[in-house]
Design a binder for these strands. Structure first.
Lengths: 154, 154
DNA sequence: ATAAGGCCCGTACCTTAGTACGGAGTCAAG
DNA sequence: CTTGACTCCGTACTAAGGTACGGGCCTTAT
């Protein structure tokens, strides 16, 4: 028993075209076909698609998500390379969590104060994401611009 | 002392054009100009722009960020409306944090196992974002599709 | 005072992530 | 055995978030 595009799409909460799109982008593996040409997805595809949508909401691009998913099946040989990649992703996630927590605190603070204190400066919302010591490089960002456009900025 | 576009851009790690773009989108307030027409930004603009970039990395759209920023100055009258908006944002952030934590656990698990256990199913990465009880509605997503395209999906 | 570099503006273009379209073949219920 | 829903494919379009371009004024260091 395999699911057809419409069924997968409905269960995962996306459009049929999105499944084809993900397939083209290498995010969904090409499923087997019946002789009519119809795709027959394994049921776990639904979870897979949901994972993609959630990860997007957390600020990961499709490229990053594909990378993340590729970690499922490691080519047996290349352990170390993958391991450091996973570690990098872990740092990134920790970073995001800390930022979100800071934002959360700021909004709660705002809910209490119910207004920014000063005329202009000292707003807890903005401060929330700027007091992060791990982000405190400043020079990093300036360097990363370098001679304008050397590194892909956003 | 006010900063000019280039200075703000350099310090915040974005392009000058991005500042103009944000201004058009209502994310940066229009700064005062000198008589030459040059913009003179207050120094806290740098923090503001950094906030925007961080928030984007956390999966917020510019529209949402503008909303978030608008909470800084509440029109004095509309408290209750703002308060519920803030509470909604707080829930959303908690949600994101929980998902990221789940993803983090999954990747750590993967780092230990260093391979998905089964041939195909039972992958900790994918399971990480699917076991969330708050997301467990399923019907929600199906309904949200409704009669195809009624609600803006992604 | 003049040249290099910064800034102005509008417009055009780019990438990412889908959405829509339309003609043709497939499937299942009546 | 037909009718309506589903699927196929390629191609075109859209929206968001920038980026680039080019002609024309500022500014400032030499």
């Amino acid at each position: 028993m395999g699911l057809r595009t419409g069924e997968v799409a409905r269960r995962a909460g996306v459009h049929v075209e999105t499944l084809r799109f993900y397939e083209r982008k290498g995010i969904l593996p090409e499923p087997p076909r019946r002789k009519s040409g119809y795709r027959e997805y394994p049921p776990e595809t639904v979870e897979l698609v949901r994972f993609v949508k959630r990860a997007q909401q957390l600020g990961f691009s499709l490229r990053e998500i594909r990378e993340l998913l590729s970690l499922r099946e490691v080519p047996e040989g290349a352990r170390a390379r993958v391991q450091s990649l996973v570690e990098e992703k872990l740092r990134e996630i920790e970073h995001k969590i800390r930022h979100l927590e800071a934002m959360h605190r700021a909004l709660r603070e705002l809910l209490h104060a119910c207004r920014c204190t000063g005329r202009s400066a000292r707003c807890p919302i903005i401060e929330s994401l700027n007091g992060c010591p791990t982000c405190r490089a400043d020079g990093d960002q300036e360097k990363s611009l370098g001679k304008k456009g050397a590194t892909r900025l956003p």
